[in-house]
Design a binder for these strands. Structure first.
Length: 493
RNA sequence: CGGGGUGUAGCGCAGUCCGGUUAGCGUACCUGGUUUGGGACCAGGUGGUCGCAGGUUCGAAUCCUGCCACCCCGACCA
């Protein structure tokens, strides 16, 4: 009806937009390229954030906060990083507005209030953080520094998409400083594993861990690790990255420490981040033509209770009481529950509404059910309906939620596995790309030129060189030059 | 930034080509009633600077000029 959503087969992009908007996660705003994350969407983000934050703390990190603005001179210190972000930076040049003398009631930028030094709105915080770390670090005893910040960043993208690419987005960025290269690399790997575990176990989304080619690497990094997820349209989505920054930032910001031998050395660095983009990944990986499908572990609500309210006041009260009793039982087990008592809407309407919003379990409570000591339970992922006895209900629902979590994951794994194709010829490469899509494992001669050429010809990029990749001699799928291993290609968001 | 499209009630649209009473339809919303196990029905109602700014005209949603925003595709990117 009014909330009808476009089907995936009809228009995948529109389907995605419909889910975000009509599923109540986010909305467009008056600011170009920026979105409003609505309460329902933000609750989802908070749930994700809480799990990640706990994992960061368990791995020894603490939170801090650094400024939104970066003086241009600091920003440009690490050249490669600065160059990489230069063309998408918002820049503050003035600090005051004034009334337009020619047009009362309107404001203009006061030309007399020009900043001596322009401020870059952070697209990422390495510069301001390493400028700070310089003050914190003198000896090996000051290391490691394991800091994370939850923040907003701005990247002035030409083309934006809700959650996937907006001009401003929310993320966390970890920035660590270490005494040795080995320790920094270990940290980089540790954090990509934290991300992979989170995404797989909580978001029910299987990922492929790997490292990026030089072309795809973060500007200023020596090595970039990535987790790559697969969307239902066969395109890959980079879902998190962890960078080994070597001594690049330490050198740029002159951050040295005295080691145990009393010798001065540059500090080794890492940075790692995931963003609200993960919500986009979640939507595109799991949802269907009826709406969102959200894995229970991060869902804003686990269960919606829909009582069938009767006209008769007494009967009505019985149902209502029972509904709240069930709510309490479920909440006592730690479940997040909402009750819908709105009797201006009919049940069918509500069913569709909560399916759209992706609440994992719907429970219907009516007189017919109560007579039999049961409630009707429908799971969102499969739409399967079943009666559950009231006895031990909270336990059986907890178990059901676990089953749903697992089954969403299993489905995504099956889809992902079906969409990893090994190819050995250029014909097969393009055929798979244009046909079933997904990941392609193919030989590559290891040169950036070949990578660029493949991208130019097909829009496919090397998503990563999988961790623990088997070595296997072969011939590059494009050039026929010798290759030591297969790498993972895909078209990507 | 290039190509295409859209902008009229909260949402979805018609009307624009060919200017002419009071700008219409669906839905949502409000009131009352009947309903309620998969998107209810009847009756009555509220809601509009027709994206913005100029211009042409007796008269502009409609014609002209400029601008803005958003969507889709591309280049760029997380």
């Amino acid at each position: 009806m009014s909330k009808e959503i476009t089907s995936r087969s009809e228009d995948y992009s529109q389907w995605y937009n419909d889910l975000v908007i009509k599923g109540n996660l986010a909305d467009y705003s008056a600011v170009r390229g920026c979105m409003v994350i609505k309460p329902y969407g933000f609750t989802l983000w908070e749930n994700m954030r809480d799990v990640l934050d706990k994992k960061f703390k368990e791995t020894g990190h603490t939170n801090a906060y650094f400024p939104l603005f970066v003086p241009k001179s600091l920003f440009e210190a690490e050249e490669k990083n600065a160059e990489g972000f230069a063309k998408e930076c918002a820049v503050v040049t003035h600090y005051r507005l004034k009334t337009d003398p020619n047009n009362k009631g309107k404001l203009i930028v006061d030309p007399d209030a020009k900043l001596e030094e322009e401020l870059v709105v952070r697209p990422t915080s390495e510069a301001i953080i390493w400028n700070t770390y310089k003050k914190w670090i003198q000896s090996y005893r000051d290391l490691p520094i394991l800091v994370n910040q939850w923040a907003n960043v701005v990247r002035w993208e030409m083309r934006t998409r809700l959650f996937l690419r907006t001009a401003e987005f929310l993320w966390q960025e970890g920035h660590t400083a270490h005494a040795t290269k080995e320790e920094a690399i270990e940290e980089t790997e540790k954090m990509i594993n934290v991300y992979a575990d989170f995404v797989e176990q909580y978001m029910a989304l299987p990922v492929i861990k790997g490292y990026k080619t030089e072309n795809e690497r973060f500007a200023g990094a020596e090595e970039t690790y990535t987790i790559e997820a697969l969307m239902q349209d066969g395109k890959a989505l980079q879902s998190g990255t962890s960078h080994f920054l070597g001594q690049n930032f330490a050198k740029a910001f002159d951050v040295k420490f005295l080691n145990k031998e009393g010798k001065e050395e540059y500090v080794w660095a890492t940075s790692w981040g995931v963003s609200t983009r993960l919500i986009g990944a979640l939507i595109m990986a799991h949802s269907d033509d009826d709406g969102l499908i959200i894995p229970p572990r991060i869902a804003p609500f686990h269960v919606v209770l829909i009582p069938f309210l009767q006209k008769n006041v007494e009967e009505r009260q019985v149902i209502e009481d029972k509904t709240y009793e069930i709510k309490q039982q479920l909440e006592a087990k730690g479940l997040r529950v909402i009750v819908d008592l709105d009797d201006t809407k009919r049940p069918g309407f509500k069913f569709a509404e909560y399916e759209l919003k992706g609440i994992p379990v719907r429970m219907v409570i009516g007189p017919r059910d109560l007579e039999n000591g049961v409630v009707e339970v429908a799971r969102r992922d499969t739409k399967e309906k079943k009666s559950y006895t009231l006895e031990g209900l909270a336990d059986s629902i907890s178990q059901l939620l676990e089953d749903i979590q697992q089954s969403i994951y299993d489905k995504a794994v099956a889809f992902r596995d079906e969409h990893i194709t090994k190819v050995d010829s250029w014909e097969a490469f393009t055929e798979v790309l244009d046909g079933k899509g997904g990941f392609i494992l193919a030989h590559w001669d290891g040169t950036g030129e070949t990578e660029d050429k493949i991208k130019e010809l097909t829009k496919a990029t090397i998503r990563c060189i999988p961790l623990g990749n088997e070595l296997e001699t072969g011939k590059c799928v494009l050039t026929g030059n010798p290759s030591k291993q297969r790498v993972l290609f895909a078209r990507a968001y």
